[in-house]
Design a binder for these strands. Structure first.
Length: 445
RNA sequence: CGGGGCGUAGCGCAGCCCGGUAGCGCGACGGUUUUGGGUACCGUAGGUCGUAGGUUCGAAUCCUAUCGCCCCGACCA
């Protein structure tokens, strides 16, 4: 993409309404625009990152054997009357009447609707196990939205629902979700820690939240530093192997890690002093097992292998997709701007032409642009007639992880410069070598 | 929902107390200059002063109502 052909309304100054760094940077980098309290338009750069995050979530869910579908944002109130949550949910639920006076709502979550779909079409244990998920906009009419997309009223969420014939099978689904989530966050450059959590209004027995450590987080967490050393490292998981999944879950849930809601002081103090740690953290996902909480009242039954009709065992599992942008920026930025992890960056690499209009630098940039594009690495080419400083500042602000700088000075020796946004280190090399290096970097992403 | 604050140009702000018909910086646009970290200078465009009503010869400014947004707290993914 050529910057002169793009829509990237960057701001040089900080908007007054933004308090935390991710909100400031998203506004300054032209990623979002607030349309009402807690409701945002996603401008092209932000939309690109949102789509990248979605793609990773989809990929990892399907790798785990979970099946995508799409449910609507608007739901009939009657479904929620069946589960009893229509009255329980309170003012957070946005209630709407259609032209016929029927009660509708903008879904804050989809347990009722997925249960309705399930009960209409599934009769037998032979159809199980089944996990259906979607990535859809939700609305929760928060009293006080804040922190940009981290706590908006409208938000994009992946929510998945497992249906299993018994407890053991449902726990495997739970474990599958934990493992897939760990892989998902790691691909986004995040270290998300599963922590035992409260079940809250969704209800249930077993539940873990995934938290990313950040000073601006809303939760207070206590953990054993040993958990910071754990890595999935892209290890290949056989999701049909119950023991293998359980082993990974065991590995990640053994070190102490809890939010203030479930914090156990005596367990925590039993840790060696130098491993006790406390921090603020951002919640980026949660998994629940809740058994037959919805299947019983809503009549989602299956016939088991003994010919008995039993309520199906369920769980629900969420990832805050739009919130993740904020969380990633909170975890990865410096005083100049965002530093995108390669896995989610809106563009893999930027090209900065230091002398726009110069025959040699223009030609070199065009060559780089074509070569990178041909290798599936769409660059953002700053072809504006701006000074070097302005171009560098913009690139640093929007946070592309790699930058190729093309100037007359280097080009006289046949060299361009490849710079890491994260380390700030630069290396001179031929344009061809720079393309190879960038391709090599992204080969493993 | 309790407490506090703010709505003036795309962004950041001044002007309001003490009424006289709107200004600064940045950005945008045009030009000259400059050319490896937001260059300098000249010029141009852009505002129903959130909205409605009231007081007044006259309202961004005073009064009333209303809407919106932000912050702290409680709540929450």
């Amino acid at each position: 993409m050529r910057l002169t052909r793009y829509f990237l309304p960057v701001l040089r100054e900080n908007p007054a309404e933004a308090q935390i760094v991710s909100h400031r940077l998203m506004l300054r980098a032209g990623m979002i625009r607030q349309q009402a309290a807690g409701i945002y338009s996603w401008l092209p750069l932000g939309f690109r990152v949102l789509r990248r995050i979605e793609a990773i979530v989809h990929d990892e869910q399907q790798r785990a054997g979970h099946i995508p579908l799409l449910m609507p944002t608007l739901q009939p109130a009657d479904l929620w009357r069946e589960s009893g949550r229509y009255d329980d949910y309170g003012q957070e639920m946005l209630r709407i009447k259609d032209r016929h006076g029927r009660d509708m709502l903008y879904g804050p979550t989809n347990e009722e609707m997925i249960t309705d779909i399930f009960r209409a079409h599934v009769e037998s244990y032979k159809s199980l196990p089944l996990t259906l998920y979607h990535i859809q906009w939700k609305f929760r009419d928060e009293v006080r939205p804040r922190f940009g997309v981290m706590r908006g009223r409208e938000f994009l969420m992946k929510d998945g629902y497992n249906f299993d014939v018994d407890y053991d099978s449902a726990m495997h689904a739970y474990n599958r979700h934990m493992v897939s989530y760990l892989r998902t966050y790691e691909r986004m450059g995040l270290h998300a820690i599963p922590m035992r959590a409260d079940s809250g209004p969704i209800g249930g027995d077993d539940t873990h939240e995934f938290l990313v450590l950040a000073d601006t987080g809303e939760s207070e967490v206590f953990y054993d530093k040993a958990i910071l050393d754990l890595k999935m490292g892209g290890r290949n998981v056989d999701y049909t192997d119950r023991a293998a999944c359980a082993a990974i879950v065991h590995e990640w849930t053994t070190p102490y890690a809890r939010t203030d809601e479930t914090h156990d002081v005596s367990l925590y103090h039993a840790l060696p002093q130098d491993r006790q740690a406390t921090s603020r953290a951002i919640e980026v996902g949660q998994i629940f097992y809740f058994g037959t909480k919805y299947s019983e009242p809503m009549g989602a039954m299956v016939v088991n292998e003994h010919g008995e009709r039993v309520p199906v065992h369920m769980g629900s599992h969420g990832i805050g997709v739009s919130r993740l942008l904020g969380a990633i920026i909170e975890a990865s930025h410096d005083d100049k701007g965002i530093v995108w992890p390669e896995g989610v960056t809106p563009f893999p690499v930027g090209i900065v032409n230091l002398r726009q209009g110069d025959t040699a630098t223009d030609a070199a940039c065009d060559m780089l642009y074509a070569a990178l594009t041909a290798r599936g690495l769409e660059p953002l080419y700053d072809d504006r007639d701006e000074r070097a400083g302005a171009k560098f500042a913009s690139m640093d602000l929007i946070g592309l992880p790699w930058r190729i700088t093309v100037g007359p000075r280097g080009l006289a020796n046949g060299k361009v410069e490849l710079t890491s946004r994260r380390s700030g280190e630069s290396e001179e090399m031929s344009p061809e070598a720079a393309v190879d290096r960038v391709a090599q970097i992204y080969a493993g992403v």
